[in-house]
Design a binder for these strands. Structure first.
Lengths: 131, 131
DNA sequence: GTAAAACTTGACGTTGACGTCAAAGGCAAA
DNA sequence: TTTGCCTTTGACGTCAACGTCAAGTTTTAC
């Protein structure tokens, strides 16, 4: 398929697809006239790329990981980097969840100002005593 | 306390603190000579700000939320915005977790190429049948 | 009293993942 | 063949949360 169809199906812009190619994380065949052609698998590949971006990985990191995805193999050093990124994601999930709890608390207080049962302030950490 | 101490205690740069003030999300008293002075509570406030940044909120959004944190009250419209952000965070946690699972799978395959028991490819969504 | 450390404002630089033209060429339908 | 959409490369623009440098002032330490 050509770039426009891939863009629609993967729900990204054509600009993004060209950018991915520029960054070495998405390849394409070229017709004699120079137009890009992609296989069906490119749709899933682009979705994977988007997911990794959403997980906070940069282009370089993704570029270094994708070959392992295809080879289903990696050197120990690479495995370590994978684990490190995995840990980063875990930490970042925890941060997000805590921010979520804080927002929940705020919503509860803000929406139902009369019913406040929880004595904890939003400015204080309810589970740690060390200011 | 002055800006340097707050920066150390909240683990951000002084530049960041001045930036927050510029964005209207952190206030300070000024000594006659113009130096900023912060109360103890500023440490927690900065941590809250950082958490909201980490949760993907921008300065404007944070600026609009903080007054509610202090007032412990918000107009219905604001409560809706809070809920919307909360939903965004929930979605983003789910995304992160899925990326995490994909990385786990990749690590498993890459680190122990002999033991592959799982037939699912990393390019395919194991829980959805619609390619 | 003096030197070092901390502080001030101002302003330009950085980074990443694209957006947005612009000018030109490619391709299927009528 | 013409119409009209699709695609190409190139290059500048954007936005946010700061980093960094400059040049001057204030506070602290000795």
């Amino acid at each position: 398929m050509r770039i426009g169809e891939l863009a629609r199906r993967a729900k990204v812009s054509t600009r993004a697809l060209r950018y991915y190619e520029e960054q070495g994380i998405l390849s394409s065949e070229r017709t004699p006239s120079g137009q890009r052609h992609y296989p069906e698998s490119a749709v899933d590949r682009v979705r994977l790329i988007q997911q990794l971006y959403a997980a906070g990985l940069g282009s370089r990191m993704i570029a270094s990981f994708l070959p392992c995805v295809d080879a289903k193999h990696a050197e120990p050093e690479m495995v370590e980097r994978l684990r490190a990124e995995r840990a980063r994601i875990t930490a970042s999930v925890a941060e997000l969840q805590e921010a979520g709890r804080r927002l929940d608390l705020l919503i509860e207080l803000a929406a139902y100002p009369g019913r406040r049962r929880c004595p904890a302030s939003l400015d204080e950490q309810s589970r740690t005593a060390t200011g």
